[in-house]
């Protein structure tokens, strides 16, 4: 076994930590951070397991996919932050309206 699996487990851990924070925190900014951490976790699993071919080369396709993913993530984060600001501007606080049970 290589360090590939070690980082892949860390990635799973990040995914779950992010999921936990997404569920328990009410503040939207924390939820946005949580989604970003979850994303990093997924990317880490994707790239880490590409190392299973050994030391010299690793599979470039996951690398390209993660670069795609990072760009998608920053786009989504920007939209989420803009929405959060607009919502806070109207309601006075950055929490989701109504009952909170997601």
């Amino acid at each position: 076994m290589t360090n590939a699996f070690l980082y892949a487990f860390a990635g799973i851990g990040l995914f779950v930590l992010g999921l936990h924070a997404l569920v328990v925190h009410a503040h939207v900014l924390r939820k946005i951070l949580a989604v970003n951490v979850m994303g990093s976790g997924v990317f880490l699993v994707l790239v880490a397991l590409a190392r299973r071919s050994g030391e010299a080369t690793s599979d470039p396709v996951p690398h390209a996919m993660v670069i795609t993913g990072i760009v998608v993530a920053v786009s989504a984060t920007a939209l989420a932050l803009a929405l959060m600001l607009k919502l806070a501007g109207k309601s006075g606080e950055a929490v989701l309206p109504g009952k909170h049970n997601d």
Binding site: S40, F43, A50, R51, S58, H63, I67, V74, L85
Partner: peptide, 29 residues
């Protein structure tokens, strides 16, 4: 993990620009 391309993208976008966006949003919030 031998992913220098990803490392560059992460440092610039993942940490840098996302961080700047988050800080700017917090300041405005």
């Amino acid at each position: 993990l031998n992913a220098s391309d990803v490392a560059l993208a992460e440092a610039a976008i993942g940490a840098g620009l996302t961080g700047a966006l988050l800080l700017a949003a917090l300041a405005r919030l």
